[in-house]
Simulated assay, not measured.
Amino acid sequence: QVSVPTWAEMGSVKKDTVAHKPAPAPQGGNLDSMLVMLQSDLSRQGISTSTKGLCASCQKPIAGQVVTALGNTWHPEHFVCTHCQKEMGGSNFFEKDGAPYCERDYFQLFSPRCGLCNEPILDVSWPRSAGECSDAQCFHEKDGQQYCHQDFYELFSTRCQGCGQAILENYISALSALWHPECFVCRECYAPFLQGSFFEHGGRPFCETHYHKQRGSLCWGCEKPIAGRCITAMARKFHPEHFVCAFCLKQLNKGTFKEQNDKPYCHPCFLKLFG
């Protein structure tokens, strides 16, 4: 026979039973706070646990993710730039007087400034001489003043006679000046001097054709340079064989032609066409 417990008996059983409930999660707490609370509960139940150290910022135990830097451990959200308070757990950082700084603030606060643009010089490990470095972050020094790479060359480098920009590497020396190789070309057609020879006029280099054009010594008939005898007529120059009647193409001599509409004609053709 099975006896059914009375209500009083059920109440006494309930009263004598002790239930272990987990501590309530902190309102608004983060993951580390919840893990610390769980660690406390496990310790009360005799389960051994260990922390990852105390956070150097808040001095509370670290039970979750940890950042190790500057000889200390930190909660990730507490390892921040001393100046802007930005989290730096996965970023490069710099140390100054034992405090961490993000890269941007470190250079803005502590790097020397360029003597021309006043921007921070990012690479200050040693001064560089002209031509030694092509990195825009290089540090150069002249007369006791520091300069960024770009402004150093802007102020002190030799200029190309062609484009006026700084010469940093290879150059051509010609006509008492220095040139970038790509700038030493004919100043009229910009063709390079593939054979290494050029013509000078007014202190500037030209190919043969445009040298003669500058000097007015191109044949009006064939547009080739005139190196020997020439005929000057109608304010132009011609090879003798290219000074011909515009109609019959017979070779003309100076003083034995007629001009019409800026063209030369022999006497018979002139009379036939315009007489």
Rank of each mutant, 00 (worst) to 15 (best):
residue 1 Q to A: 14
residue 4 V to T: 14
residue 7 W to N: 15
residue 9 E to M: 14
residue 10 M to P: 13
residue 12 S to C: 14
residue 13 V to G: 08
residue 15 K to P: 08
residue 15 K to V: 12
residue 22 P to F: 07
residue 24 P to I: 07
residue 28 G to R: 07
residue 29 G to E: 09
residue 30 N to G: 00
residue 30 N to S: 02
residue 31 L to H: 14
residue 32 D to V: 02
residue 32 D to S: 01
residue 34 M to W: 14
residue 34 M to A: 07
residue 35 L to E: 06
residue 36 V to Y: 10
residue 37 M to Q: 15
residue 38 L to S: 04
residue 38 L to M: 15
residue 40 S to N: 10
residue 52 K to V: 00
residue 53 G to A: 06
residue 56 A to R: 02
residue 64 G to P: 03
residue 66 V to K: 09
residue 66 V to R: 15
residue 70 L to F: 02
residue 70 L to W: 09
residue 73 T to S: 14
residue 74 W to M: 02
residue 74 W to N: 00
residue 75 H to T: 00
residue 76 P to T: 00
residue 78 H to P: 02
residue 80 V to G: 05
residue 84 C to L: 08
residue 85 Q to F: 01
residue 87 E to R: 13
residue 88 M to H: 05
residue 88 M to W: 04
residue 88 M to G: 01
residue 90 G to P: 13
residue 104 R to E: 15
residue 106 Y to G: 01
residue 108 Q to C: 01
residue 109 L to S: 05
residue 109 L to F: 10
residue 112 P to N: 06
residue 115 G to I: 07
residue 116 L to V: 14
residue 117 C to M: 06
residue 119 E to M: 00
residue 119 E to S: 00
residue 121 I to D: 01
residue 123 D to L: 06
residue 126 W to Y: 11
residue 126 W to T: 05
residue 127 P to Q: 11
residue 130 A to N: 05
residue 133 C to T: 05
residue 133 C to V: 07
residue 138 C to R: 05
residue 139 F to W: 12
residue 140 H to G: 01
residue 142 K to G: 00
residue 143 D to Q: 14
residue 144 G to Y: 11
residue 145 Q to G: 02
residue 145 Q to K: 12
residue 146 Q to E: 08
residue 147 Y to L: 05
residue 153 Y to E: 02
residue 157 S to Q: 10
residue 159 R to V: 01
residue 162 G to C: 02
residue 162 G to H: 05
residue 163 C to N: 08
residue 166 A to M: 12
residue 166 A to S: 08
residue 166 A to K: 07
residue 169 E to H: 14
residue 172 I to Q: 10
residue 173 S to F: 10
residue 175 L to N: 06
residue 176 S to A: 15
residue 180 H to L: 06
residue 186 C to W: 05
residue 186 C to N: 00
residue 186 C to S: 00
residue 193 F to E: 05
residue 193 F to W: 07
residue 197 S to Q: 15
residue 200 E to K: 05
residue 212 H to K: 05
residue 214 Q to Y: 03
residue 214 Q to T: 03
residue 217 S to T: 15
residue 217 S to R: 14
residue 219 C to I: 05
residue 220 W to D: 15
residue 225 P to E: 06
residue 228 G to Q: 15
residue 229 R to V: 13
residue 230 C to K: 15
residue 231 I to R: 10
residue 231 I to E: 10
residue 232 T to A: 04
residue 233 A to D: 13
residue 233 A to F: 12
residue 235 A to D: 15
residue 237 K to C: 03
residue 240 P to W: 10
residue 241 E to K: 09
residue 241 E to I: 03
residue 244 V to P: 07
residue 246 A to T: 15
residue 246 A to I: 01
residue 248 C to R: 09
residue 252 L to Q: 03
residue 253 N to V: 15
residue 258 K to W: 12
residue 259 E to V: 12
residue 263 K to I: 09
residue 263 K to T: 10
residue 264 P to L: 07
residue 265 Y to K: 02
residue 266 C to M: 09
residue 269 C to K: 02
residue 274 F to Q: 00
